Computed example of a mutant assay.
Amino acid sequence: MFDDEKLEEKIEKIYRHHYLEVYRFLVCFSGNQNDAEDLTQEVFIRVLNSFTKKNSISNVKTWIFTIAKHVAIDHYRKKRFSSLFKDGFFKQIASTEKEPNELVEQNELKRLVHLAISKLKPNYRAVVILRGINEFSIKETSEILQCSESKVKVDYHRALKELKKRLHMDVEEVIGNAN
């Protein structure tokens, strides 16, 4: 009984600590808050089901995000939805100091970026969300995506190049520096 209670407390702590980050990642990937809620629940169900099976987890955060990535890709494959990132992708930066025309321009830019990201290949989309939006390190991104750090760098560079083509602008202005 004691071990079960201890395990339950540990899982609850992991859930509280990582829920919001996983949810944000899944909102970015799915573009839909309702889907992200369902997918987040699915991630933590999988975490719960496999937690006792995993004897040594070197980095809980990357393990959970690896599960989240697989859940998101499974969902993407099942639905084959055409429009991603409709709401909630960027942090709302609405300020009372902004002029109405600045807000309209900002919202239009967000819409264009959402659309461009949604048209990227799933692995490019994932690396852009993890590196460019969530600001994970190259190492963390490689662990989550289960690939080499070199592949993360190459995919991120190619994804930004593709976004630049799609947006006809300097992506670094929108997302940040590629390095």
Rank of each mutant, 00 (worst) to 15 (best):
F136E: 15
I175S: 06
N55P: 07
A178H: 10
Y15C: 08
S148W: 11
A126G: 00
V154C: 12
T52K: 13
F51R: 04
V171T: 13
M169A: 15
H157C: 12
T96C: 08
G88M: 07
V71L: 03
Q106N: 02
S95A: 10
S137H: 09
F44I: 09
S142P: 01
I67E: 00
L39R: 04
H75C: 04
T141A: 03
L130A: 03
E102F: 01
E105G: 02
Y19K: 13
I175D: 07
V127N: 00
S118Y: 04
F136G: 07
A159G: 11
I45T: 11
E12I: 10
K13Y: 11
H114Q: 12
T141N: 00
V60G: 12
A159L: 11
L160D: 06
S58D: 13
D4Y: 11
Y15H: 14
I57D: 15
V27E: 01
F136T: 13
F81H: 09
G132Q: 08
S30D: 03
S95V: 06
Y23V: 11
S30R: 07
L109P: 03
N55T: 13
E173I: 03
K61L: 10
T66F: 00
L48M: 13
V154M: 08
G88P: 06
E99Q: 03
E102V: 04
N49F: 04
K69R: 00
V174A: 07
C147S: 06
L48C: 14
K151W: 14
E140G: 14
N101Y: 12
K110D: 00
V47D: 05
P122G: 02
K6E: 15
V174Y: 02
T62I: 11
K151V: 15
T66Y: 01
Y124V: 08
S50R: 02
D3S: 10
N101G: 06
L145Y: 03
A36K: 04
K164P: 03
K13Q: 13
S30V: 03
V113Y: 06
S50G: 03
S58P: 07
D4W: 10
E21D: 14
K53S: 10
A159N: 06
K78M: 10
E149C: 01
H18V: 07
K53G: 09
F65E: 01
K153H: 07
K10L: 11
P100H: 10
I64D: 05
L130C: 05
E5N: 14
R77S: 02
V43N: 02
D87V: 13
H168G: 12
F89P: 04
S148M: 08
I93E: 03
K119H: 01
G31V: 11
V60T: 15
K139W: 15
V154R: 10
G176T: 09
D3M: 09
E99V: 06
L20W: 09
F25A: 00
K151I: 15
I138Y: 08
I57T: 15
L130Q: 00
F136P: 13
V22D: 05
M169F: 14
I129E: 00
S82W: 11
E172V: 13
